[in-house]
Structures are given as C-alpha cells and as structure tokens.
Design a protein around this nucleic acid. Structure first.
Length: 471
RNA sequence: GCCCCCGUCGUCUAGCCUGGCCUAGGACGCCGGCCUUUCACGCCGGAAACGCGGGUUCAAAUCCCGCCGGGGGUGCCA
C-alpha cells in the first residue's frame, strides 16, 4: 500500500512551496488509495514553536488536507536513541569528540585551499579505550555516521530520473548532536522506515541529502523507499520564493480573501499538468483521480499571483455554489463593519454581483454600495450632479421609486429607460448621475443591480440627500 | 570552488521517452474589437517561445556533445 507523508518543521507559517509539496504528497497517496501522514519535524528545539505547529495544522486543514496519522519527532527521542545505539554497535557510526571550533578551522582551511570541505574523519579510528577515557573526562561528543569510502549512491527519482552522487562529496556526518538530540538526516530515515513510508515526496533541495539517507537505510537494514523530488517554486526574479517576493504564506492568501479550493487548484498547476489538455479548473476529487507523479514537470516554476487571482475569480463566479460563496463572504463583510450584512440579503446580492470581483477582499471594496447605508460623494463629483438635466433625472427617478421599487434588474432598467425617454435624455445622462448619487463612484457594479437589490428606504435616502443638497 | 538539478511565448504549461502529424497547441497577463449605464464579467481576434554552437539524420523542440544561463546543496538547520 502506498503511504506518503508531509513533514514540516514548525518554524514559521506554512509556505506556499511547502503547501504544494503537502498537496502533491496527499494527492499521490489518495490517488493510490493509500494513507497520508503528517509529521512535525521539531528536533531543533531552538527554533521549533508550538504556535507555529498549530498554525501549520490549521492552514493545512483550511486547504482541505486530512491525514491518517500524526506525530511529533520530539516525542520519539527514545526510538532514535535506540537506532543510534544500533549504528554504534554495528560500527556504522562512531563518537566524535571534535569541537565546533576545530571543525570550523578545518572548514576554513578547506575553503582557503579551494577544496571541497568534508570532515577529516579524525575521530574515526579512536580506540575503544580512548573513547572510554574521553567520555569519562566528560568531553562532549557527537555521533557521526561512517560513510563508506568511494561509494557512488544511485537512486531513480520518480520525477528527475536516475541520479548518482558520489559519497566523496561529503564526509562522515553528524547523526546525534552533542546535546544528545538526533539530526534531520538520521531521524527522517528512522521515521520513514518505521512508519512504512513507501514514497518520499519532497522539495528538490533535499536531493543532496538523499544519498546520506540511503546509506543509513542500508546500514539499518531498512527497505529504501521511492523518492520523488519536486522542483522548487520561484519568485518573479527566478530565485527561490521567499518573503522578499511578498506574500508567500498560505495564511496571507487566506487573509487576502483567496478561496482554499482555488489556491489548492492553482498550486497543483504549478509543476503538474493534467493528462487531458486544455482544462485547468479541477476539484480536489478530480485531482485525486487524475494526479500522477509522471505528469509533474521537472523544471522550477515561477509563482504567478495574477493567474492565481484569475483562478480565484473563476471559483468565485462559477465554481462555488451560491450558498457556499455567501458563507465565505460573510466574515469579510462583517470585518469591514458594513451595516447591511444580513445572510439572505448578502446571498441575493452575490447572486447578481459575484462576477464583479476575484477575491473576497476585492468584494469588500467593489460591493461596498450594497452594504453601507450612506455613501460619500467627493466634491469633484458633485459637479456632475450640479446640472439641470441630472437634477431633473434624479428627482424624476426619486418620484418613480417612491411607489415603484423595482424587484429585478430588468424592471430597474425598464424604469430608468422610461424616465430617460420621458425627459428626452441620452442613457448616460441619467445613468451617470444616478450612479454617482447612489455610490459616490463613477464606475462599479451595475446601477440596475443597486436599484433592484438595495432596500427601498436606503435607496430613497441616498437620493433624497443628494436632491436636498442640490436644490 | 566543488557536487547536484533545470533551460519551449513575459508567466504556468503541452509536445521530448517512441525524431516527420509543430506553419510549436492551451491558459494567465498584454493589445484590439464586440456587448454596454461605467468598471468588470462574457464573447471574438491579435502580438508573443523551442538559450547558443556543433554534430547524427532525408528530416531535430524532440537524439548526442560542448558552451552559456538559472536554481539548489555544500551545518552539531530542516
């Protein structure tokens, strides 16, 4: 059975790149009817924070992911100890008493000579007696993995194809720190092996780690899983997507009024393409059905906010059921402190005006005239209203609305047209002042919608205030 | 420096494995038009790419080599 995992470290918000990795791992597992594990990689106790872990989980859930198993590495230290001991016993690892200062010197020396740095292996050959003596003296030590000489580790990456890396590129590496905590390359193997992960799907920045991990798998007698390394997500300048590029956390997009379904869908389009050409809008269920690692592109993708915005708009106006869209919209309208935020009313407005915005924060702006009681009109716009014809049109409209409030946009257009004809005006001569009177803007959603949807008394109040000031 | 990965329109991508169907297809964005009470939405149309140089071949985006460019790694971070 297929089993994948997503293993974030709780050191910050859920990054878009990690979110995509999580999504691909999730889709792959679900596609194969397998299971998906969430593992918190908090072995670095300095940087790991409980709050981050909570936000990570919340964001993952918000995106629509669910998992079958959950655990923290910080709860499994005894297990790692056990395996470290085993490596020590079998000679695959050894204690290293080199101090950070000594290692730093080695590193600088290597750099000065222009050669690749790798640990010298100085502690490799300490006799058991020496080790005992140093330990008794209380000298702190790390545990290093003994990398076999001259080996070339190969693996067949499911996305990149065959990869071969010589162990000459790295020296014996630390698997247990001097404070007794295990390091990433070690625990990742123990956990993946013990929990039966069949496919390790992660970012391509982990490719250099893979041979180290394969050596540990072998030393411990574990079965080596399949690996799939996803190309990274880039910013506009083609460097790895980071804070410098603006909003890069799932949280930020959530707060900006993006829908989880759209973000999920968009992230999938970054690097993966559907087998059937020409379609880009997919539900999670469809993605589970269609997703395959063989359709993942092996070159990095630039994150394009414009396209995400467009796709979000597609979800807003076409995909989400009206009921659902209303639910999502309400918190945003409430947060804006609008007065006319009543669910059934909001639903009715969205029914007609959902094609006017791409994101929910954009909605808050664009649909403002529907939800506030009164609108402000800038001085410069008054000049358009201080016009004989405009005044005539507005007062005629006001009189009509008094006893004939239109219930649909069609009725509204009919009513305005009658007034326009009667006063012998051109359409814009009545629509434009009416728009300004009702919204304080020169552009925006259809005025017919406002006439049909806005409560009668709100409509009349706005017109009355304008007319009072004009006459 | 060394190691690894990558290189099709501005961007996401299809095509590459299994050369000819590619006059290189789709999408976002951009430009123009239509619709229209405005802005959008929608519809129609357009500009826009095989990094460079060598091979192999009747034929190369597709296969091979070199170069250039970009990215990542090089920790007692993950």
């Amino acid at each position: 059975m297929v089993k994948t995992r997503f293993a974030p470290s709780p050191t910050g918000y859920l990054h878009l790149g990690n979110a995509r990795t999580a999504i691909f791992s999730y889709l792959f597992a679900r596609h194969h009817g397998g299971s998906f594990v969430l593992r918190i990689e908090d072995t670095d106790r300095e940087r790991s924070k409980k709050e981050y872990e909570e936000m990570l989980i919340e964001d993952l859930r918000w995106l629509g992911l669910d998992w079958d198993e959950f655990y923290r590495q910080s709860e499994r230290f005894e297990i790692y100890d056990q395996y470290a001991k085993k490596l020590l016993e079998t000679g695959h690892a050894y204690p290293c008493f080199c101090t950070p200062e000594e290692l730093e010197r080695e590193r600088q020396e290597a750099q000065r000579r222009g050669v690749a740095y790798r640990y010298s292996g100085r502690c490799r050959h300490l006799s058991p007696e020496e080790v005992e003596r140093l330990k008794r003296e209380g000298k702190p030590y790390t545990i290093r993995f003994r990398v076999p000489d001259g080996r070339v580790v190969t693996f067949n990456d499911l996305i990149k194809g065959p990869i071969a890396i010589s162990v000459d590129d790295f020296g014996d590496f630390v698997i247990v720190r001097s404070d007794g905590t295990p390091t990433y390359n070690f625990v990742v193997v123990v956990d993946d092996a013990l929990t039966g992960i069949t496919h390790v799907i992660r970012g391509e920045d982990h490719i250099p780690n893979t041979p180290k991990q394969i050596l540990i798998y072998e030393a411990l007698g574990f079965k080596v899983p399949e690996f799939a390394h996803l190309p990274v997500i880039l910013g506009e300048d083609r460097s790895k997507l980071s804070k410098r590029h603006g909003a890069v956390s799932v949280r930020a997009y959530r707060e900006e009024g993006y829908l989880p379904e759209a973000l999920f869908n968009y992230l999938c389009l970054l690097g993966w393409s559907p087998p059937e050409e020409g379609r880009e809008v997919f539900s999670k269920e469809e993605l589970i059905k269609l997703f395959d690692l063989k359709d993942v592109n092996d070159s990095p993708a630039v994150f394009n906010k414009e396209k995400l915005k467009w796709l979000n708009g597609v979800y807003v106006r076409e995909v989400l059921p009206l009921e659902e869209l209303t639910e999502r919209a309400l918190p945003f309208l409430k947060r804006a402190n609008y007065e006319l935020v009543e669910p059934s009313y909001v639903k009715r407005v969205l029914e007609y005006a959902r094609d006017a915005f791409d994101t929910l924060t954009e909605m808050v702006e664009r649909l403002r005239p529907f939800f506030v009681r009164e609108v402000e009109i800038d001085d410069e716009l008054w000049s358009f209203l201080e016009d004989e014809k405009a005044i005539a049109a507005l007062s005629a409209l006001y009189d009509e609305l008094l006893n004939r409030k239109p219930e649909t946009p069609e009725e509204a257009r009919k009513l305005v047209k009658e007034v326009q004809k009667k006063l012998k005006l051109k359409p814009p001569q009545v629509w434009k002042p009416l728009r300004i009177a009702l919204t304080g803007e020169t552009e925006g959603v259809g005025v017919d919608l406002l006439l049909a949807l806005l409560p009668k008394e709100v409509l009349l109040t706005r017109l009355r205030r304008v007319l009072e000031r004009l006459t």
